[in-house]
Design a protein around this nucleic acid. Structure first.
Lengths: 331, 331
DNA sequence: TTGTAGGCGTTATCAA
DNA sequence: TTGATAACGCCTACAA
C-alpha cells in the first residue's frame, strides 16, 4: 500500500493501463523519438481519463529544475486600472499556455530570493533589472523579459513608449490650434519615473512644433488644488489653453477643479488624458484621451514569455504602436 | 560532483557548516523537539547567509504534499477597480506569510484539475463551491475559504453582504426624503448574481419603510440609454426622485445621461453609487456612494487563509460591517 | 544532540 | 517499442 495520499500518480495510471510508468510519461509528454503504438497510447490516455490523473506540478518542477510559474514584478505605484487590466490579460494569456502568473509589488520582495525559491519559468519586470541579476537568472534557465519604459530596439525588451504618450497629447492639442500647452503632473511621487518620460515626450513634441515648453503644474487628486492650477494656467500670459494630463485620473480632477472656478473645457482650457478609463466617456465634458491598448501590449508580453519558455516562436505580430487617440469633447 | 545545476542545496549548506543536512533542516524549520546547540545553529545560519541558500519550493511541496500557493478563483465579471484592489491587498497580505497568490478567472479553468496539479495550501472561491468539491479538497489537505455573497453565520465563510449595500443606499435616499426610489441596473449579464442580491436588499429596505418597491431600469454604459432611463424615472407618476446605482460606473453613466437631458442631481434625481471609485469625488456633482472597505475585507480573507494554513489562529478582528456611506453631493 | 536513510512524483538515461 | 532505475531537494522517522 504505497498509496498513502489520495493522489493519483503516473504509476497508478501505468498499472491501470498495464504498461510501465515510463510509457505513461512518454505518452503524456509526446516524447519525440519514442514510437508508441497507437494501441498503447490509447490505453494510457483512457486510463488517464478514467482515473482523472493530473501530473504534480511540484514533482515536475523538481525534476525539471523549473516550475510553470511566471513571476511578474510590478512597480510600486498606485496600481490603477491600467496596470491591473494588463495583469489580468497577461494572466489569462499565460494560463492558456499552462503557465501560472504570480505577481509581486517591487518593494516587498528582493527579486532574487523569490526566483531562487520558486524556480519560475520566466520573470518579467516592469523596471530595469540589473545586468548581474539578469545574468544569474538566465544562467538558472529562467527567461527574463523586461518591460522597459525607454525607447529601445532590443527585441527582448517590451517597450511601453511613455514618451510617445506625451507626444501624442501635444500633437492633438496642436492640431486643435493650441499654442501654449500645460502639463498636469500627478501628486504621487511614485509616479515620478513615468512622469519624467511622458513629460519629455511632450517637451520634445512642443519643441518640434516651435512651441514653448509645456507649463508644468502639479494637479493632485483634490478639487481645490486642481482649481488653483486651472486658474493659474488660465491667467498666464499668454494663456495656456490646452493641458496634457498625466492620466485620466488627473484629468478628472482638473475638470472638476475647472468647474469650480467656472472654466469650461475645451473652450477655456482643453484637457486630454491618458488611459481611456472606463469612466472617461462620462466625464463632463467627455474626456479626450490616449488609449494604450493594453490588450495588444499584454498579448505581446505573453508572446515573448511563451516563446522564451517553450522555445517555439509564435508568429510575430505586426509592430503597431499600441497607442491611439480617442477624441471626445474635452480637447 | 553532484553539483550539476547552479542551485545551492541544503546539503551544500551542511557541508559548509560541517554538519549533516538533517541538522540544517532542523535549524531552518525550528523543529520543536530537537535541541540544537547554539553554536551549531549559528554555524548553519552563517552558512545559509554566506551561500545565499533558498529552499526549493518545489522540493518542499513535493515532500510536504502541499505547495505555498494560494489559489483564488474570481467570478467572471468585468473586473473593475473594486475586485482588483481586493486581489492586490490579499496578495500583499499573503506574501507576508510566505504564501503566493495565483488567481484564475472562473470560466477558464475547471476548479479541480488546477488544484490537483498545484497542490495549493488553500483555495479561495468567490462563488459557492459544490459540497463534493469542497470535501475532496479538504481531504487533500487544502483549506477552502469561500466568499459567499449571501448572508450566513458560518464562520468559515467570508460574507460580502451584497444585500446590505442595496439597503444602505435606500436608507440614505429615504433619509434625504425620497419616497419613490429607482434602481439602475447594469447592462452586463455577468453581473446578474450580484445585482439580484443588491436589489433584494434595496427592495427589503423599501418595504421596511413602507415605500413602493424600487423602479428598476437598465442603465448600460451608454449616455443615450442612460438619458432615456433618467427621463423615464423623472416622468413617472409619482416621479422617482432618488436612484440607487448598481455601482459607481453605472452612476457616472446615469449622471452623464441626466446632463444630456437637462436633469440635475440631486434636485431632479438624486444618485447614489457603490464602490467609492477613485474618480467619484470628481463626478459632476461629486458622487455619494457606498464604500465597501476592501482593506478590511481583504484583511479578513487573508486572516482566514493564513489561520487555516498555519494552524495558528490570529486574533479575530472586530466584526464590523465593512460598509460605509460616503456622502458627497449627488444624493 | 546529531546523523542515516527512505521516499514524495516526475523525467530521462540506458538496456532490453 | 517498452521497462528498470536513478536523480531532482527536501523532510522526518529512527538510529546512534
Amino acid at each position: 500500500m504505497a498509496r498513502r495520499t489520495g493522489r493519483v500518480t503516473a504509476t497508478d495510471v501505468a498499472k491501470e493501463a498495464g504498461v510501465s510508468q515510463t510509457t505513461v510519461s512518454y505518452v503524456l509528454n509526446n516524447v519525440p523519438n519514442q514510437k508508441i503504438s497507437e494501441q498503447t497510447r490509447r490505453r494510457v490516455l483512457d486510463a488517464v481519463a478514467k482515473l482523472g490523473y493530473k501530473p504534480s506540478a511540484a514533482a515536475r518542477a523538481l525534476r525539471l529544475g523549473r516550475s510553470d510559474l511566471v513571476l511578474l514584478f510590478l512597480p510600486d505605484v498606485p496600481v490603477g486600472g491600467t496596470l491591473t487590466a494588463l495583469v489580468e490579460l497577461l494572466g489569462d494569456e499565460l494560463e492558456r499556455h499552462g503557465l501560472n502568473l504570480v505577481t509581486r509589488r517591487e518593494r516587498h520582495s528582493p527579486l532574487e530570493s523569490l526566483w531562487r525559491e520558486l524556480m519560475p519559468a520566466a520573470v518579467m519586470t516592469t523596471f530595469d533589472v540589473s545586468a548581474e541579476d539578469a545574468a544569474s537568472m538566465r544562467a538558472a534557465g529562467i527567461h527574463v523579459v523586461s518591460a522597459g519604459m525607454s525607447p529601445t530596439t532590443d527585441p527582448g525588451v517590451l517597450t511601453i513608449p511613455q514618451h510617445l504618450i506625451g507626444a501624442m497629447q501635444v500633437e492633438r492639442l496642436a492640431a486643435t490650434r493650441h499654442s501654449r500647452i500645460g502639463y498636469a503632473a500627478p501628486g504621487d511621487p511614485r509616479l515620478e519615473g513615468f512622469l519624467a518620460l511622458r513629460l519629455d515626450g511632450a517637451r520634445a513634441a512642443c519643441a518640434e512644433r516651435g512651441l514653448e515648453p509645456p507649463v508644468v503644474l502639479e494637479v493632485p487628486l483634490d478639487i481645490s488644488a486642481a482649481a488653483a492650477a486651472a486658474e493659474q494656467w488660465h491667467a498666464a500670459v499668454p494663456a495656456v489653453t490646452g493641458v496634457c494630463a498625466y492620466n485620466d485620473e488627473t484629468a478628472f480632477a482638473l475638470l472638476a477643479g475647472m468647474r469650480r472656478v467656472g472654466l469650461a473645457a475645451p473652450n477655456d482650457l482643453a484637457v486630454i488624458g491618458v488611459d481611456n478609463d472606463k469612466l472617461a466617456p462620462f466625464a463632463m465634458p467627455p474626456l479626450t484621451t490616449i488609449d494604450n491598448n493594453l490588450d495588444v501590449l499584454a498579448g505581446r508580453a505573453a508572446r515573448m514569455i511563451v516563446n522564451g519558455v517553450t522555445g517555439r516562436s509564435l508568429p510575430a505580430p505586426p509592430q503597431v504602436t499600441p497607442l491611439s487617440l480617442v477624441v471626445r469633447e474635452s480637447a
